[in-house]
Simulated assay, not measured.
Amino acid sequence: MRYGSVTAVDNVSFTVEAGKLVTLLGPSGCGKTTTLRMIAGLEIASDGQILIGGQDVTRLSAADRDVSMVFQSYALFPHMSVLENAAYGPTVKGLGKEKSREMALDKLALVGLKGFENRYPSELSGGQQQRVAVARALVLEPQVLLFDEPLSNLDAKLRRRVREEIRELQQDLNLTVAYVTHDQEEALAVSDKIIVMSNAKIAQQGAPRALYEEPANAFVADFIGDANLIDVTVTAVVDGRADVAIGPASVSLPARGLGPGPAKVAIRPESLLLSGQVGQSSLPGTISKCAYLGNHLDIMVETPVGELFVIQYGHHAMLEPGTPVSLSFAGSGVTLIPPA
Rank of each mutant, 00 (worst) to 15 (best):
L253E: 03
V144Q: 05
M38A: 14
V310N: 06
F329A: 10
L274T: 02
F116W: 15
G4I: 01
A8N: 04
A40K: 06
V92A: 09
T181Q: 09
D231K: 13
Y74T: 05
G126P: 02
E164S: 12
A87V: 01
P304R: 05
L51T: 00
F147A: 04
A8C: 05
F309T: 06
M1K: 08
Y3M: 12
G306W: 11
G126S: 12
E214K: 14
S250T: 09
N11R: 15
D298W: 06
D192P: 00
V111H: 11
C30Q: 07
I230P: 10
G54W: 11
L258E: 12
L138I: 02
A63W: 04
F329N: 08
T35G: 08
A340N: 15
G247D: 11
D47A: 15
E185T: 01
A200V: 04
T335S: 15
Y212F: 14
R119S: 05
L154D: 05
L229Y: 10
S198T: 00
I50L: 07
T91Q: 14
A216E: 10
R167I: 03
E17W: 00
Y120I: 03
E84M: 09
L308N: 14
Y313T: 04
A63L: 06
G306A: 13
M318C: 00
L188H: 07
M103W: 08
L108K: 09
D148T: 03
L154F: 05
A63Y: 04
G257F: 13
E43V: 12
L283M: 00
P260Y: 02
I246C: 10
F77G: 03
L229Q: 09
V82R: 14
A63E: 06
S288H: 02
L319S: 09
A266F: 07
G4F: 01
L336H: 03
G126R: 15
L154G: 06
S275N: 08
A62T: 00
M1S: 13
E98D: 07
V162A: 10
T181K: 14
P324I: 05
K193W: 00
V244H: 11
S61Q: 13
D47C: 02
G115T: 03
N118K: 15
A242N: 05
G96V: 07
S73K: 06
S198D: 13
Y292A: 02
E186N: 07
S328K: 03
P304M: 00
Y74K: 03
N153I: 02
E307Q: 14
Y179K: 07
P260F: 01
T176Q: 03
G31C: 09
T181F: 09
P321L: 01
A135P: 10
R241E: 08
K107Y: 12
M69T: 12
P90Y: 11
L145E: 04
E117G: 12
S122A: 15
E123L: 05
F309Q: 14
S282Y: 05
Y313V: 01
